[in-house]
Design a protein around this nucleic acid. Structure first.
Lengths: 141, 141
DNA sequence: ACCTTACTGCGACAATGTCGCATTGTCAAG
DNA sequence: CTTGACAATGCGACATTGTCGCAGTAAGGT
């Protein structure tokens, strides 16, 4: 198991949550994924691994992980929400509209500065933001 | 009718599209809205005005407007896509997580510069991006 | 007035969640 | 190790948000 998955489990336990097979499997699926996963993708992975989880369970689990700050929700253009573990550094995503590949984009200092500037101008207190790029990846362009 | 709505109709006509009651009503609804509208909100407005439009028609219309570049799609945290007329300057949105108010945020030159820098670093050709702020508006903070 | 075809309504269906309720499984206290 | 509390699960019904095919309607040029 990856370090991020381990840390996530620790964080959960210290929040009154219990360690179940489904939960462990969901976290591991997210930890091993290269890109944010949708609920149905997570469900597919669990099924492939022989962990029979219900659809509702997966949704509830993903919601619980988000609430606990262990996972973050991202929305691209498709309808389904996607989830990734919150372990690493703050980053954004570049989504290829042709091959659907998702690559991480490290947070840019100027970007954050621009956000603070915007917040100051408008009196808006920013809690979080979304910033995603859509276009063609190096292979598809 | 607002100027933006008028311009949108002109743009449509010069694209082989026809001017129907439903189309006119959808465009007017978007033109008069203070914030991006979801399909069901648009439908609600049409019904209130006595323009009996079918759900499928509204969806098709919004899609057509997006394809024509007359409307743009934005996604906040909720599931439904939202639409606004593309008339004005490029901008982003600040969404209050408490009162749900949406205010426009003018595009920031630094933001765009950061985007170009990111694109250059990664070999990614950016076609469009999303940037939305979530937090507390001046009234709710 | 007529033709072409864009547009519409209807109804079925699909994808993505959400919820209540009875049952099961965790885990820590005893 | 047993047991009690309650977190978590499975099941099934339902809601929301779209999508699609098809037959009928109507916009707009000729």
């Amino acid at each position: 198991m990856k370090k991020t998955a381990h840390a996530a489990l620790e964080k959960l336990k210290s929040g009154g949550r219990r360690l179940t097979a489904a939960r462990r499997a969901v976290i591991e699926a997210l930890a091993e994924a290269e890109a944010p996963l949708s609920a149905s993708e997570v469900l597919g992975i669990l099924v492939k691994r022989g962990v029979g989880a219900d659809r509702a369970t997966v949704y509830r689990e993903l919601e619980a992980l988000s609430e606990a700050g262990i996972a973050v929700t991202v929305r691209f253009e498709s309808r389904a929400a996607r989830f990734e573990l919150a372990g690493g550094a703050h980053h954004h995503h570049a989504v290829c509209v042709k091959c659907e590949a998702v690559s991480d984009v490290e947070a840019d200092a100027e970007l954050e500065a621009a956000e603070r500037r915007i917040a100051r101008r408008s009196g808006f207190k920013v809690l979080r933001h979304s910033f995603e790029l859509f276009g063609l990846c190096a292979d598809c362009r």
